[in-house]
């Protein structure tokens, strides 16, 4: 899992927290960031709150992040569904070095996490809004 274009690695904790979210169903979202020396992807925060707005509020307007959100929605006539979303948050106003780092390191994290059903590349808040994500999630078939 070291083969991202930037050579940045994924910390073990990233996988552990993801497993907790996947299996335990207690964690609702995880925010990942880069370690201060830019060599490793680390967990910044996990939360059990299912409030989507609270989750969006965690995304900084001028900094990049990765995030996992366990998206729960009602499928008409078929009951509740859960889809795990992977979000690459790279706002237009963030610094170019950050954008470069997060974009070139994404593959390392994404490939390490198994069981993601949707991926979202967000550059502004409209692209990660609840409706946008819902539409994308409910379109995916698996």
């Amino acid at each position: 899992m070291t083969n991202s274009s930037s050579g940045v690695k994924v910390s073990q904790e990233c996988l552990e927290k993801f497993q907790e979210l996947k299996l335990g169903k207690k964690t609702k979202y995880i925010i990942y960031t880069l370690s201060p020396d830019n060599t490793e992807i680390v967990v910044e925060k996990t939360s059990a709150s299912a409030d989507y707005d609270a989750f969006i509020a965690e995304l900084p307007p001028t900094d990049c992040r990765y995030a996992i959100y366990d998206f729960e929605y009602e499928k008409e006539g078929e009951g509740k569904r859960n889809k795990i979303c992977f979000i690459t948050w790279s706002p237009d106003d963030s610094k170019i070095k950050q954008k470069m780092l997060f974009a070139s390191s994404k593959d390392a994290l994404r490939k390490a996490l198994v069981g993601i059903s949707s991926e979202i590349q967000g550059t502004d808040f409209s692209e990660v809004a609840y409706e946008t994500v819902l539409e994308k999630v409910s379109r995916s078939t698996f």
Binding site: S5, I96, K99, A103, S104, D107, Q121, T123
Partner: peptide, 12 residues
């Protein structure tokens, strides 16, 4: 191409 894409913050 990949460098330019990354520099704009986009793996895709």
């Amino acid at each position: 191409t990949v460098l330019s894409s990354f520099a704009s913050g986009k793996p895709t």
